[in-house]
Design a protein around this nucleic acid. Structure first.
Lengths: 172, 172
DNA sequence: CCCCGGCTCTACGAAATCCGCAAACATCGA
DNA sequence: TCGATGTTTGCGGATTTCGTAGAGCCGGGG
């Protein structure tokens, strides 16, 4: 019962953020607001989200489902791996000769690589890896990653302590 | 009805992963299993989790609440910022003179820093930053980060494309 | 040996939430 | 103007969440 109709989204000019998002699906202001709600609490009830963004419970539910299906967002538990028993974690900078994308795909296929991103700068790729122990770490870096065709060199940064980890860009 | 009593956790020897977790609270096998479930789907019902780990719905609920309260895990929506309207993102390697920890704290206090980790290697800190646009990125790196006392130098890696982002270390 | 405090689990009823569906509505192009 | 398409709303029933009370386990005194 939020006083009748909600103003049509297309009535207001498209939010600046909607344009040029790298090829992904278009996200309007309402979906952004929904994501923002779920960044604060991934289990917040649909009705509460609806009240916050001005939509019915069912509409929120359908939008959330679509965002999940499209891969725009995922609702998950995140932890500090070091707290949960993985004793060695590292960021690895990778230099590539040839096709960077195919190397990125190869690294993405590895379970131990939790995070893979193509970058500009003195590395072509940055990869975060999570391992059980030192032996595992050594094997992943020196045997597996360097064995990928196109990998020219790597540089490792072993994690000592995680200081911050947030996902609340929306709540600034 | 999982055949009467669940074996007391302390009956079996402590899981190897439980020890030496960096000072955080002790996590037994069951809590690990719960986290694993929520890494697959952060909204999975407590009853379903209970069936998977061999616990009642209420017990799962109480454990999850405690894990959240203790800060061991968070249940949140995660996205690719580039997909959601933030146009510039970068990893920044930082070299520090003096106390690394205090610099890490200062950087953690900045909203734009989403991820801060102390490392061993040619950088003392690695920081992931999320910005609206080029101007914002420039200001954060050149004015704010370099202005922190103790920061000797920085090197930036601007994100071109996010290839992988997972949180399912448990499901290997 | 017994009792007690602290902690965790189970049981269960009430309240809130989730879910599927059909109808209403908006938008857009023919 | 008229469909085609996609979204939102409004239900009712199934499911889940929530609070709480009581039981089981364990270790530390007395």
């Amino acid at each position: 019962m939020h006083s009748g109709r909600v103003a049509s989204r297309s009535a207001e000019p498209r939010d600046a953020r909607e344009s040029r998002n790298g090829g992904g699906p278009h996200l309007d202001t309402v979906s952004l607001a929904i994501i923002e709600q779920l960044q604060e609490d991934g289990r917040r009830p649909y009705a509460a989200i609806g009240k916050a963004v001005g939509l019915s419970e069912a509409a929120v539910r359908q939008r959330v489902q679509k965002l999940l299906d499209q891969g725009v967002m995922q609702i998950v538990a995140v932890t500090d791996p070091l707290t949960v028993g993985f004793r060695r974690q590292a960021m690895v900078g990778v230099n590539v000769e040839g096709d960077v994308e195919s190397v990125a795909d190869a690294l993405s296929a590895m379970d131990e690589c939790e995070y893979v991103v193509m970058t500009a700068g003195s590395f072509d790729l940055m990869v975060e890896i999570v391992c059980e122990d030192d032996d595992h770490l050594l094997e992943v870096i020196n045997r597996r990653i360097r064995a990928v065709p196109g990998v020219r060199s790597t540089e490792s940064f072993v994690y000592l302590r995680l200081k911050k980890q947030t996902y609340m860009w929306g709540t600034r």
